[in-house]
Every structure is written in structure tokens, then in C-alpha cells.
Design a protein around this nucleic acid. Sequence first.
DNA 1: TTGAAAGCGCTAACAT
DNA 2: ATGTTAGCGCTTTCAA
Lengths: 380, 380
Amino acid sequence: MSRSATSRPTVPDVARAAGVSTSTAARALGGYGYVSANVQERVHEAAAKLGYRTNQVAKSMVTGRTNTIGVVGADIENPYFAGSMRGIGDMARATNYGAILTNSDEDVAIERDAVQILVDRGVDGLIVAPADVSDCSHLVMAMERGVPVTLLDRTCPGTEMDAVIIDNVKAAKEAITHLIELGHRRIGIVTELRREAEAYDMEKMSPGQDIDPLTLNPSASRLLGYLQAHWDADLPVDPTLLGRTKTYTKARATSATIDLLKSDDPPTAIFSVDNLMTIGALEGMKKLDAHMPEELSLVAFDDLDWMTLVTPSITAVRQPVYEMGMNAAQILFSRINNPDRAAIRSVASSELIIRNSSGPPHTSPESRVFISKSKDADSA
Amino acid sequence: MSRSATSRPTVPDVARAAGVSTSTAARALGGYGYVSANVQERVHEAAAKLGYRTNQVAKSMVTGRTNTIGVVGADIENPYFAGSMRGIGDMARATNYGAILTNSDEDVAIERDAVQILVDRGVDGLIVAPADVSDCSHLVMAMERGVPVTLLDRTCPGTEMDAVIIDNVKAAKEAITHLIELGHRRIGIVTELRREAEAYDMEKMSPGQDIDPLTLNPSASRLLGYLQAHWDADLPVDPTLLGRTKTYTKARATSATIDLLKSDDPPTAIFSVDNLMTIGALEGMKKLDAHMPEELSLVAFDDLDWMTLVTPSITAVRQPVYEMGMNAAQILFSRINNPDRAAIRSVASSELIIRNSSGPPHTSPESRVFISKSKDADSA
DNA sequence: TTGAAAGCGCTAACAT
DNA sequence: ATGTTAGCGCTTTCAA
């Protein structure tokens, strides 16, 4: 296991070549302490000649800092995280940090594991999109161990962690209000809502109760926005319009959409709660041959590059993912350098981009071909 | 800068608590050397009680291994790399490795920098998609420094590095042959070809010359496949059908496509050479309102999830990106554990998925509305 | 301004 | 099977 053909030169090597002591050479190389200009130059010359490069591992051991952060997201294949990750990576590079990427698949156990491993590795900080906002104990522990955590996309209620989020309730509400204003009265929503409690919320929630959106996972808070839009418009809410996938998969989104469309009184519009759900919903619509926007409107959460290319182009809520990633990294670095400052909560602004997949609803059910079609078909 | 509230317990701490020597405790903890069952248990109890966790940095310093690899791709926002990265990450996790991700934006200077920094950081190996196959000196240097490199997506000719690739020439040839068999005789190609030399190749290349595809960047080797398909079918090649973007951006792909379509004798089909080029090409086609497949056929390189959702669905060459990423990681790990084995070149198999964006060409130019339309329009 | 020496937390000879 | 000791490459007191 010869790690290197000829092992790399060390500080003592450079010192010897420059005719100074180890500590002087180290000072010159590391740029700290007092060094005379003359020595500075001699040392750097020697270093260049020998091809010296600082051994970061050794440096880390004594400084206690690795200049590395850990990033725990759900899935790098999801454009949301890919975009954030790019932002994080760019900011890290600019600040001389490395970023170790791990995927949790929205599984808290995997996330807990990943965090543990990253902390063991000595990362200087973590950026985490927690799989479950009600289970953040491992993140709190990391912070207590001296490893700062910046939350992305979600917050952990009752904790004092920095976070970069958007206002999911507001964003969803805006999307639904758009549909209501177009005349839609039966709006389906395709969303995960993994935890039982979240699904019940739709019936339990009422205009009176003042729920803190920060205690909710994104899918639940987007549901809340859905509800609030209805309340504000004095519209009733029909629980059968809830297309709950329980599992975060495209296939479930497809079947949830199909179920919705095949119901006795199908929705005239669908709100898909994030990019994976959108793909699933579109697949379901395609299977039933439901045409947008004449037969069915669609508003998607998360804007992707292909959404302008499809016909019709898709109305979507855009999040500034790249900027959010950059911001999260920046906030984390500031925290690393100033562990005791107050927690920052950065709320990025989202934007509803109205395109052609959303239009006025059709008045007569007869004109909606997919309905009669679906009567013939069996299950999915 | 208090890194941790109360600093973490060390091996000596555990040893003391268990009433054994440091080295015995270390052996028990690290699972190496001889330890009696009795002591093994006592040490682990003590460790658990103290909440001991191995300091990986210290361990790395003495073992010379960090259990970390570096990954240098063009852009994590590109689904190709995101998919590979997911594969790499999953394999790394399974093998107890961490993966540091960096983006090169296809810039050799950035890549060289990234490699240097990762080597300084002490990564045990690198997975790199080299920005330019003719400029791999920094990768060779890393290898000479004892840091193995596995190439992804591209090879470095004349070097002995492991690589995971597909047969780009064959894949492109298959795609173009499909179009030729449909009856197309004027097939446009939208591709980067950054280097001047690559662009000249189209004219210079001839059936006789036996070019080694491994000396070419992906976009050039796909062009070669394009040419070979023509040669095999005894069809002439028209250099004006080359939509060269020079820069790897969507915008350039769009304008290259528009230029192609607005030319005096526009192509009846377009081959977009990777996913970014495809998005650009589609945008250009949409701008000119060129309908697929009646007016214009499209075959894309890289298959993405939305390509089945658009109308018409898009014919595409699929690469097993996830598997390739996994494979690259596996090969790298095997090389780390066996530095002297022969180089592996793993060629994954691609697949042409025929959908609805490719069909027979229209015989009469008059029926192609976008042509007349584009006569009116100005530039882009 | 420079040098000598200690030590970060671990592993790995070597001795017992 | 266990303990003693040295040392990875760097930073960092402390003296000079």
C-alpha cells in the first residue's frame, strides 16, 4: 500500500533547504507570526523548489478545523437539491471549503447516521435539509458537540439553528388563490404527507386555529397554504380532494392523481406540491389523456427548465434554489467564525410564474373527455 | 473559537476508565491486533459510557488514509452528473467513504485547481470527468503522487487510468442511423466542439482515416458517430449542417438550432448531442414553431424523466448514469486497495429509446410552416 | 525575529 | 494478550 512513490516534502524539509528552523519555516509558509521579509522569501523559494504542499490533515489535527462542511440532502438527483448543492459548492469554493455530499432519501435514520459520520470526520459545520422537522435531536446534538448546523428548506421548531427557507404557506396560498381566481372550486392537491398526523390536519385545521407553519414539513405547510386560500375565499374544503402519496415516489404521485381524476366529482385543477409530485401528476394526467388546461389546470411547486418547453407550458412556483444554497453556506461559515451569534432565519422569496397550464375551468363535465374515458378503464 | 463545549474523550480517556493501557484500548476500539474477550468488553463499555468516538482526523494522519474521495464533475445541476454523483455517493456510503463534490464547469483551470486542493486534503482517490481529454497532465500528476484517478464519461488517451465510459461513437451512430432509416437525408447536429480542431474534423475526417475515438471529447466522438452513420449509408456529409455552439450553454444551442433551421436548405431532423444541447434545441424549435415530428424530427443524447411527458415524447439515447457512477466508485476503491493492478476500462452500454419525436421526413418543403415563417422573422 | 520543544489523538513497532 | 514508546506533520507556547 505505497501511498506515494516518494513521500511529499514536509515543513522540516523546507526548513532545512532554506537554512532556518522548522517553526520559522512553518510561520513563513502558514503566514502567521513574525517572519522577516528575507526569510519569507528564502522559505518560499525552497518550498517551490521542493514542491512543498501543506498537509491539510496534519494541519487539521492541530487546528481542530478541517475546512470541510457536510451537506445532507434528500437526493442529489432531485433538481431542488442539485441546485442548492451547486450554490453551496460555489460558495464553499470561494471560501476555501470543501463540501462532502450525502443523501438521506428523506429517511431520518439515514440522516442521523450521516450526521454522526460527518461529525466524526471533523467537519466544521453541516447544512441539512432535515427529513422530518419533528425529529431533529441529532442535529441539536451536533450543535452541542460544537458543530454548527444550518437548516435548508425546513426548520426544526423549538431550536436555535440558522435556517434558509421560503414561506411555503404563502407560496402555496398564492398558487391556489391563482386557481380560485380563475374560477376553480374543486382543486386537487398531490402531496406526500408521510405522517398520519399531517393528513388529519386537513380536516382538523380550521381558520380559527393558529398553527405555526414552522412546525410543519414542507408538504404539510403547503397544504396549509392550500387551506388558507380556501378559507380566505370563503370556499369549503373537500377532504376527498387530497391526493396523499404517503411515500415520496413518482409512482405514488401518479396513482394519487389518477385516483383523484377518476373520482365521482373530479377536480378541475391540480396542485402538485413539488417537482417529483409534478412529474408523477403529469404522468397520471397523460395516462388518462386529460388535456391541459381545457380539461384540467395544473400548478406545480418548483420550476424546472423543461416546464417552458412542454405544451402547454407549466405554471409553477419558483424557488431561488441556487441562491438559497449559497446563502446557507454563507450563513454557516459566518456561524463557524462566530459560534455565539444569534440564530438567523433567512426567508427567500418565491414567485408564482403563470404560464399556460392553468386556465379557467370547464363548466360542463361532459366536455371533459378523460372523465368518460376513465369510466371505461379499469384500475391503473 | 471554542470548537466544543467539553472536548471529546480520547483513547487514553477510555483506557483509563477501562483500566487498561492506551494501546490495548486502541486495539479493542479499532478492532485490530489481539484483545481478550474480557478486555474487549470492558473497553467498549467504557467507551459507550464516555460517549467515545474515533477522531478520524487523527486516525487519518497516522494511517495516511482519509476514507474520502474527491469528485470533479462539470456541473452537479446537469442531470448527467447528478445521476452519476448519486451512484458514487451510494457506493461510497456502502463502503464507508465520504465524497467531496466539486464543479469544474468544463474549465480545465478550475479542474486543475480542484484536483490540487483535493490532493492536498488527502483524498484517497479521485473520480474525474476531465474537461478536456487532451489536457490530463494534472491527473497524471495526482496518480504519480499516489492518488488514484478514475475517469468518468471520458478517457485520457495515452494514460493508464481506470475509466468508466460508454461507446459514444456507436451510440451516436445508432441514433443517426435510426434517422437515416426513417428517410432523413439532411440531419443537423447541435454540439459544442469547443476546440477548433474538433470542428475541422468534420471536413477533414473521411472514411479511410482510422481515428481513435478515445482521443476525442464526447461531443467530438458523437460527431464521429454521426459521420460514420453517413459513410456507412453512402450518404454525403454537409458541413453546413453542423450546429456548433463552441461554448457549452443553452443559449448557444438555441441560436445554433435557429441558424440551422433558418438556413436555405434546412435539416429535416436534428441530433442534439447532450441534455443541455437538447433543451437549447427544443427552445429554438419552439421559437420558430417547428413541429415535431411532422416538420422536424429530433433525437436527443441523454434521456431525462420529462422526455416521456412532453408531446411528442422524445427519442433519446439513454446512458446508465447511476450505474456508471456506482461502477466508477467501485473501480476506484478497488484501485485504492490494489494500486498496482492493470487499468480497467469499463464500457457501459447505451440504448436508443425510440419515441415520437422522430418520424419520416416531410417531402415537400412547403408543408414545413416554420420555413416560411422564419423568412419573415429577423434574427433571434 | 527566530529557535527549541511540546503536543494534537491516534496507530504501530517492539518488548514483555 | 498487553504495555511501552515513538512518531505521523503540523502549530504553538515559551525562551532566547
